[in-house]
C-alpha cells in the first residue's frame, strides 16, 4: 500500500525555510547581543556604581544556567506572571540576545582590560575626553583581542539557536524533527541537518579569519607579522 513516506520537493522548501529562520534568529540575536554585550563590558570596565555589579550578576546567571530553562522561563513564565503576550520568535530572540550579550560582555571586558591602563591615564593627562579615549585608544586595541574570542562565541551561538526548536520555532532542527517523523529516515535527515550547521559554523570561522587578517594588517601590530626567520 503506498504511503506518504519518502522525500519530495516540498521537503527542500521546508529545509530552506528552516535555514532562513535559523539564520535570521542568529543574525538578529548576534547583532543586538554584540552591541548590548559591548555596552555591558564598558559599564563594567568603568566600574559604574550599582549597574556594574548588577550587570556582572545578570551575566553570571545567564552564563551558568541552561538556555533551555531560560527559553521556558521567558516563553511560558512571562505571559503567566506578567500577563504579557509573547510569541515564540520574540522569546527566542530575547533569550538568545541576552545570552550572546552575557558572553560578549566577558569577551569585551577582557579585551578592554588587555589595553594598558597607563595609556588611558596618559590620554587623560592630555585632556582627551572619555569618549575620545574610548573611541581612539581603547576600542582599536581591544578589537584585536576581542575578534578571535567573538568568533568563538558566535560559532557557539549558531549551534545554540537549535534549542529554540524546543519552544516550537520552526528552525532547522524543528524541520529535521518534522522530516524525521514523516520519512522515518534518521540516517538521511539528521546528517543533512548536521551538515547544514557544520557549514554555517565553518562559514562564520572563515569570515572571522578573513576579518582578523584585515584588522591585523591595519592595526598597530601590522609590522609584527610572521618574521621569525630562524624559527
Amino acid at each position: 500500500m503506498p504511503t506518504q513516506e519518502g522525500f519530495n520537493h516540498f521537503d527542500l522548501m521546508l529545509w530552506l525555510a528552516g535555514l532562513g529562520v535559523t539564520l535570521s534568529v542568529f543574525l538578529i540575536s548576534s547583532v543586538f547581543g554584540c552591541l548590548l554585550g559591548t555596552l555591558m563590558a564598558i559599564g563594567r570596565y568603568y566600574q559604574v556604581a550599582v549597574i556594574g555589579p548588577l550587570l556582572f550578576a545578570i551575566g553570571e546567571v545567564l552564563r551558568n544556567s541552561p538556555v533551555i530553562v531560560q527559553l521556558f522561563l521567558v516563553y511560558f513564565g512571562i505571559p503567566m506572571f506578567f500577563g504579557i503576550r509573547i510569541t515564540q520568535f520574540d522569546a527566542a530572540i530575547l533569550v538568545l540576545t541576552a545570552n550572546t550579550a552575557a558572553f560578549m560582555s566577558v569577551v569585551g571586558l577582557s579585551a578592554l582590560e588587555s589595553v594598558d591602563r597607563e595609556q588611558v591615564l596618559t590620554a587623560r593627562s592630555f585632556a582627551l575626553d572619555e569618549m575620545d579615549i574610548l573611541r581612539r585608544i581603547l576600542a582599536p586595541q581591544a578589537l584585536i583581542v576581542a575578534l578571535p574570542l567573538t568568533i568563538g562565541v558566535l560559532v557557539n551561538q549558531a549551534q545554540v539557536t537549535s534549542l529554540i526548536s524546543v519552544i516550537g520555532v520552526a528552525d532547522l532542527t524543528r524541520v529535521g524533527h518534522i522530516l524525521n517523523q514523516k520519512t522515518f529516515e534518521p540516517f538521511i535527515v539528521w546528517p543533512v541537518i548536521g551538515a547544514t550547521y557544520l557549514v554555517i559554523s565553518l562559514a562564520i570561522s572563515a569570515l572571522g579569519k578573513h576579518l582578523q587578517k584585515r584588522v591585523k594588517m591595519s592595526g598597530p601590530l601590522a609590522n609584527q607579522k610572521e618574521t621569525f626567520a630562524f624559527d
Binding site: V155, A158, Q159, V160, T161, S162, L163, S165, V166, T173, G176, H177, N180, P186, F187, W190, P191, I193, G194, Y197, L198, S201, L202
Partner: peptide, 21 residues
C-alpha cells in the same frame, strides 16, 4: 571539528532516532 561544529540537539536526535534503526 565535526563534533564541535554540529549542534548538540541535532547529535542527540541523530543517535536517539538512529540507534534503534
Amino acid at each position: 571539528e565535526a563534533f564541535r561544529n554540529i549542534s548538540f540537539l541535532v547529535l542527540i536526535f541523530f543517535f536517539y532516532f538512529g540507534l534503534p534503526e
